[in-house]
Design a protein around this nucleic acid. Structure first.
Lengths: 146, 146
DNA sequence: AATCACGGTAATTAATCTAGTTACAGGAAG
DNA sequence: CTTCCTGTAACTAGATTAATTACCGTGATT
């Protein structure tokens, strides 16, 4: 019932590209930050490249952001890696000869869409630049304690 | 990544109890409307009974609503059958020695919570009575065409 | 009381999805 | 040409969901 970690991992990946821009960014290095396998990272980069969020060239260890992070919202990333998947799912087949079964799908669909739209509106409000800003603030807090 | 059909099926079930109240409501009959198995229906009824939404007595075919449908929101049903599960999931382990990996979980958690809260607020706005009203309207439309 | 219908629940199975692993072809750079 | 890397496919393992089978206990009817 939940969104896969592809979403979180993709945000992680994009933020990583920004924070460590200029360095040698192999899929192995990125994977060690996410704590997953390099293949998973490459698969994610494939989707993100397809969505026009990053640019990569095979062989080089230099994936780069294709646009400013301030122009990429969480929702953009969500669509890039999860497509237009629905958060809530209606039962595909219910008894059409029943007042409930024959109409429930249409009725629920509308309310589910409303709920998902509300969630997506929140995701759209936050850019990846906001995420990176927060990461740096959190990091600064940590270092201040030490 | 999606919410299981338990949620939809439970709404279906509760609406069914209202629409066909007074009739002989076996788990078999309810299952035939949802087009699932009677065991699934009984399992759902177990959760709904546990949440105080319905009352059942073994042996009799008479599950009844424990409160007015107008007092049951979609969110109430969601919690009853899905618990407090998160729609979005953060990667449980990321590299703590990295600016990104060490802070991304905390940062994302907050934005995910905002998105989920927004979705839940929509679900809370709709009562099961609204659903039943809509079902009857849709049914009337169908019959008017014929 | 005996019987039958039904709910409550556990156990098993199958299907689906996710993510990790291995493997390999091809590009880039020294 | 050699080495490091990306892009992908194929396979495997684990988790989740829902269907099925099975069995016990309750309630109603006679």
């Amino acid at each position: 019932m939940r969104v896969s970690t592809r979403f979180s991992d993709s945000i992680h990946l994009l933020a990583f590209l920004k924070v460590y821009a200029g360095e040698r960014l192999t899929s192995d290095l990125i994977a060690s930050s996410i704590e997953t396998s390099p293949v998973v990272v490459r698969r994610l980069m494939g989707k993100l490249r397809h969505a026009g969020l990053i640019a990569t060239t095979p062989g080089t260890a230099q994936p780069v952001l294709a646009k400013p992070l301030s122009d990429i919202s969480l929702l953009t990333v969500f669509y890039a890696v999860e497509g237009d998947k629905s958060l809530f799912s209606v039962d595909p087949k219910t008894n059409p000869d029943c007042i409930v079964g024959g109409n429930i799908q249409n009725v629920l669909q509308q309310y589910y869409q409303d709920a998902q739209t509300a969630a997506e509106a929140r995701l759209a409000k936050t850019s990846l630049q906001d995420i990176v800003d927060n990461l740096l603030v959190e990091q600064a807090k940590k270092e201040a304690v030490q």
